[in-house]
């Protein structure tokens, strides 16, 4: 299906923002004491979050996981507030209670980021249940990795979502690695998408490094869900260019494999296509990159100049 120039621009901007944001974090987390906790990035996988979120309306909901920054930025998170949360500052989205890993942004309908692998899947089912119950014209998208498809929560949730024909899109970001295990080391399945049939829902394998393909598959699944056709399982094939987290030495990932996937980087693929189609010039691309670089620097400035929470703030926000 035809994708408008405007949508392509939205995806390109979102992918570049996500990439610069991640690269900046790679740089920052090498500096002792800057970023608390374990920084987990989506470098190389940006087409998935950016392509899927471009297919959504603001009222649609996303539930995400430990590798969330790309998804959140693509859904419209403010880079300043996101960076401040990653820095664990009081001005961050969650007042420093989350840190880099569990950032919740209910104001953009990204209410839950969970680091329990597979933990978001039952919650997405609940969120989609509420949409169906209230007759809302909206869907829930759940992002998870190939490793999460080995969890029991995946099975229970997909079974229930299909049974009740809930408006949910299950987005499996198959980035080849679950921790240190390659895909073929953690499952005998040829694909995660194949499992959709077992639950009575469509399952598709899609090139996850091609933003246009990502967008089209998500748009189709969203339409099916909105029309009462129930859930879809989409498996986007992509690659984890960094380690599980930034501290991961990646000794188990062949260097030539990483290099080969970097050749398939989704950003030049989309910008190249747009230039070829005449809807983007090299100059415009350069300006876009500069503008995004500045906004990421501004986010770092905002985070660094923000205060930490007061120690006693730890006692707040347990109960409503």
């Amino acid at each position: 299906m035809e994708i408008s120039g405007e949508k392509k621009m939205e995806m390109l901007r979102s992918m570049i923002l996500s990439r610069r944001f991640s690269e900046k974090l790679t740089e920052l987390c090498k500096i002792e004491g800057k970023i608390p906790g374990m920084v987990i990035l989506s470098t190389g996988q940006e087409a998935v979050g950016s392509g899927v979120c471009a297919a959504l309306a603001p009222r649609d909901v996303i539930i995400t996981n430990h590798r969330s920054h790309n998804h959140l930025l693509a859904k419209g998170a403010d880079p300043n507030l996101l960076m401040a949360e990653i820095y664990c500052k009081k001005t961050g989205y969650n007042k420093g209670k989350s840190g880099t890993l569990h950032i919740a942004v209910p104001e953009i309908n990204a209410p839950c980021t969970t680091t329990v692998v597979g933990g978001g899947i039952p919650i997405a089912v609940g969120r989609a249940f509420a949409q169906q119950y209230r007759g809302e014209d909206a869907v829930t998208v759940c992002f998870f990795g190939d490793g999460a498809a080995d969890e029991g929560s995946f099975h229970e949730s997909l079974n229930l979502a299909a049974l009740w024909q809930l408006p949910v899109v299950f987005v499996c970001e198959n980035n080849v690695y679950a921790g240190a295990q390659r895909f073929e080391e953690h499952t005998r399945s040829k694909s995660i998408a194949d499992r959709g049939a077992g639950y009575g829902m469509p399952g598709f394998v899609v090139d996850g490094n091609n933003a246009a393909s990502v967008f089209n598959a998500a748009r189709e699944a969203r339409q099916l869900a909105l029309s009462g056709g129930g859930p879809t399982l989409i498996e986007y094939r992509t690659y984890r260019c960094r380690g599980h987290g930034e501290q991961d030495p990646q000794h188990y990932q062949p260097k030539d494999e990483i290099a080969a996937w970097m050749e398939k980087c989704p950003i030049p693929r989309l910008s190249g296509d747009m230039i070829a189609e005449g809807i983007l010039t090299q100059d415009q691309l350069g300006r876009l990159e500069d503008e995004i670089r500045d906004s990421v620097e501004a986010a770092v400035g905002f985070a660094e100049s923000s205060p930490y929470p007061e120690p006693e703030d730890a006692l707040e926000d347990v109960f409503a």
């Binding site: 919650i123 969120r127 249940f129 209230r134 929560s153």
Partner: peptide
């Protein structure tokens, strides 16, 4: 059946259903 939902034998999904729906303002 809309408000009294028999579920499969799936305790994690039952509890997750409650977490997700309550975040949306429902009272499961």
């Amino acid at each position: 059946e809309k408000r009294v939902r028999d579920t499969p034998v799936s305790e994690a999904a039952i509890a997750g259903l409650a977490v997700g729906a309550s975040e949306a303002g429902m009272r499961p």
